[in-house]
Design a protein around this nucleic acid. Structure first.
Ligand SMILES: NC(=O)c1ccc[n+]([C@@H]2O[C@H](COP(=O)([O-])OP(=O)(O)OC[C@H]3O[C@@H](n4cnc5c(N)ncnc54)[C@H](O)[C@@H]3O)[C@@H](O)[C@H]2O)c1
Ligand SMILES: NC(=O)c1ccc[n+]([C@@H]2O[C@H](COP(=O)([O-])OP(=O)(O)OC[C@H]3O[C@@H](n4cnc5c(N)ncnc54)[C@H](O)[C@@H]3O)[C@@H](O)[C@H]2O)c1
Lengths: 216, 216
DNA sequence: TTCACGATGTGAATCATTTCACAGGGGCAA
DNA sequence: TTGCCCCTGTGAAATGATTCACATCGTGAA
């Protein structure tokens, strides 16, 4: 097995570059320098160049990078990541927000269906996406060959539901519940942990404040 | 200046340990081994021990760690991070979900007020938190000495609002808008980038799939 | 045509994080 | 009491990420 794997950190930055380059392009700009990208993304120019090196993209030393080509190169690397079908489970407050956001704003992903076990939520259309009862899960996942799921159910339900999803063939889970899911090696689970980030932020600001005091 | 800074990665894990240990404790367990924590958090036992080393906490070789003491030690490290006051800006779909979650579930933080510039949202109570018009921002932030803010406004408003917040003395921002905010060194900005995580997930699962094919 | 400048691309150094490997300790069984 | 087992704590190695430093190149000005 080769080690041509893109480092995850680089992957994350490439996604940022892409987003940002689209904007810049929409403003009519044709080329960028690494230090411009760096500036916009809060980065160093060397790091940008290294990242582009990873995907084998070259610019010209005089004009920097041609935005159109660069975007294409990044998209080619991320390629098959787009337009993958996905489902969402748990149409509560958070789930609804995400559903709405998706269907309004994001042409990138294909959010096929939502599921909930609350009879009041079922069979309604929320943010352009139909909400099905849990009983339909099997059928739909198999039929549509879904590989990705967003989990916005209560924490104590998350592992159970994840197990079911995995059993049905889901390969990637974006989990908002504040629990660490046990998943087999063949499945990837990303954690969106809002509270954790907040605690972290609270700690870091407070710590920085102390350092500032110490300096004085 | 000393280098007694807690590594960020360790910080994140400590928060997880804390969360998890509370649960375990509630189930009546008194002590844990590092490998048990590791198991629950999806980690290695060595890493757990190293993390605890960082905060100078010791267990006994026969019985592992006393949960009560360990929790206390972690809380002591994170100490002042709790009960800090914070505000939320942008009471849209996402903002509402977070507000509701907070006031219902999280005794950890003190979400003091929400702000929006939409007259329809203003002066209502959402999830137990009052929504103020933007004009009240100055007054309230200064009066209550707010240091933390959650940003759930549209992307194109985010930087402006962030500038204002920083000017008013905010030191930490949790930003949900998909833009990289420019902030001075004295301010910390954490990004909660849902779409980025999804793209990442989509890429990784798809990549893993390819690797699996290659194996066969 | 030549030179100098301001970019890129990249080996090597540095810094950060994780893992390895093992010393040390304490209790329990015999 | 002895020996063993399973734990913790940690120096040192390995791995991963970032930064430094510089060779290189293409262009525009002289
Ligand atoms: N809302 C937030 O800001 C926020 C922040 C951090 C974490 N979270 C986490 O996100 C998750 C959802 O939060 P929320 O605020 O939307 O909660 P919520 O209670 O509003 O929504 C949960 C939804 O899941 C549904 N559900 C319950 N069990 C289910 C099952 N077995 N199958 C399918 N659907 C099921 C419920 O009917 C409900 O609609 C929770 O785990 C929460 O801890 C939310
Ligand atoms: N909802 C999601 O799932 C989701 C996912 C990813 C990212 N985001 C990001 O989160 C942010 C909010 O998303 P949303 O779905 O809640 O959008 P939304 O449009 O529902 O909410 C935005 C809110 O901000 C308010 N607002 C606008 N300008 C303001 C200003 N200057 N000051 C104060 N309030 C202002 C609006 O009145 C509105 O209530 C956006 O930046 C979006 O890109 C949301």
């Amino acid at each position: 097995m080769k080690k041509n794997q893109l480092p995850v950190k680089t992957l994350e930055r490439l996604i940022l570059y892409k987003r940002l380059l689209s904007e810049v392009q929409n403003r009519g700009q044709q080329t960028v320098y690494s230090h411009q990208i760096a500036q916009l993304v809060g980065n160093s120019a060397v790091q940008v160049r290294r990242d582009l090196m990873q995907i084998g993209f070259s610019g010209s030393s005089r004009n920097g990078y041609v935005i159109k080509d660069l975007l294409q190169a990044i998209e080619k690397t991320l390629n098959n990541a787009y337009q993958q079908k996905m489902i969402l489970l748990g149409v509560g407050n958070l789930g609804k927000a995400i559903l709405t956001y998706f269907t309004c704003q994001q042409p990138l992903f294909n959010l096929v269906a939502a599921f909930d076990n609350d009879p009041n939520k079922v069979n309604r259309v929320i943010g352009g996406c139909r909400c099905f009862p849990l009983e339909k899960l099997d059928e739909l996942v198999k039929q549509e060959q879904i590989k990705l799921a967003i989990l916005t159910v209560p924490a104590f339900e998350a592992q159970n539901l994840a197990n079911k999803l995995i059993y049905l063939g889901i390969k990637g889970i974006l989990n908002f519940a504040p629990v660490t899911l046990k998943v087999p090696d063949s499945v990837i689970c990303e954690q969106m942990d809002i509270m954790l980030q907040l605690e972290k932020l609270a700690f870091l600001t407070q710590q920085k404040d102390e350092v500032n005091y110490a300096k004085v």
